[in-house]
Write a protein that binds this DNA or RNA. Structure first.
Lengths: 213, 213
DNA sequence: TATAAATCTTAACCCAGATCAATGAAAAAT
DNA sequence: ATTTTTCATTGATCTGGGTTAAGATTTATA
């Protein structure tokens, strides 16, 4: 029976703990224990869902490993909002905060392991662990900044710029995600992305022939 | 001289205080006094700026009265992100949090009065006033939800739907903001919005002639 | 009230990306 | 190794909104 205790401390929470220690270097061991007690590990097989449209998203989840996409379904078609890989938070935070049904799907693109904290437990932590409010604030700020960067890019950059920036910033996307999903995350069809890329390739060829490179 | 003290308590902070009391019914008078000491009132004339692109946004501001628009400048043209009127928070929160230069302008569309709290003072409050972390968290959450609603609408609704929803939700916009700004906030030109509206009007006429209404 | 300035509407033309369809290439499954 | 399935590319055509430009209407100001 004690073995369960040992199993729980085999490191499933290590990533998250490191994350918190970085934010709050002087969080007490007591506080951490209270937090650890409400954490739950969940594994999600490739193709399964972390969140489904229509259900209230009851968790904020820390990605231990794996990869997920978050998307809307618009006229039966996926419109990807973002990808999320290991060591980041994932949640339909809008649904989580408002307690309204999620408008998104969060789907595992690879076998994925996450650490859940439920809405109720988080509210409890806000009451019992003073540091939790700081963590909650920082999560909200971080989630805001992520979304904010997305809209800034959408407003100020051309699709080509957004594509190259995306790839430069997250080179692993090319290895782990098919191009049609990247297109979707840019808000265009795979055909359009293909054409944009070939246009660039053509221009480069012309330039180098005319000796401009 | 004491009169200044009296002048400061003529109610410039009443709106904000009510706002906080609503969030934290049992905040102590002491905590409030510490907060009140770092608040500063600022008036902004119509046409002047609360935030300019290129400057770090150093304040989160509560709108006492007035109306502002927040926008990007893209190829010399305004792309409005949002409007904000009395009794809401306004800030380039991205710049505020990251301490990077703002990418936006926040411009007063009417004579406006705001209550500023500076970044440094807010960090101080996070240290000294426990409740401040809750307020900070709730502000971050609220700002996130606002932006989040915006992107959801952009992804899931047609422009016409977004227009009618916008007007239904904020009817005062029609009175206080020219249509070309509303168009900009929908991401289209004034010409396009005009066309869309006349298309709808025409369809309605056809329907009522053929007796469908 | 008259005049100027700002705003809204309408029309003609253009273009980036959508849609539909066909072909190839690559990966997975058998 | 061979057959499927999935994914990427390319072409043809369509379309919503952009652009430009001209009036019309409203609002502001003398």
């Amino acid at each position: 029976m004690q073995q369960i205790g040992f199993m729980l401390s085999t490191g499933k929470f290590d990533n998250l703990r490191a994350f918190y220690k970085q934010i709050l270097p002087n969080m007490t061991e007591d506080s951490w224990m209270i937090i650890e007690n409400v954490l739950h590990v969940r594994t999600v097989k490739k193709g399964d869902f972390v969140v489904r449209e229509g259900n209230v998203c009851d968790y904020v989840s820390f990605m231990n490993y794996g990869l997920v996409s978050m998307y809307y379904l618009v006229n039966g078609k996926e419109r990807i909002i973002s990808f999320c890989n290991e060591h980041n938070y994932i949640s339909d935070y809008q649904s989580f905060l408002t307690r309204n049904p999620a408008l998104t799907f969060i789907e595992a693109l690879e076998d994925t392991e996450i650490v859940d904290i439920s809405y109720a437990d988080l509210q409890m932590l806000y009451q019992k662990v003073p540091e939790a409010n700081i963590i909650g604030r920082l999560i909200a700020e971080q989630v805001f900044l992520q979304m904010s960067e997305g809209s800034t890019a959408e407003a100020k950059e051309t699709i080509l710029e957004r594509y190259t920036n995306l790839i430069n910033k997250h080179p692993w996307l090319l290895q782990r995600v098919p191009q049609y999903m990247i297109a979707s995350s840019l808000g265009i069809t795979p055909e359009a992305l293909s054409r944009i890329k070939s246009r660039v390739a053509k221009q480069r060829r012309v330039k180098s022939i005319s000796g401009l490179t």
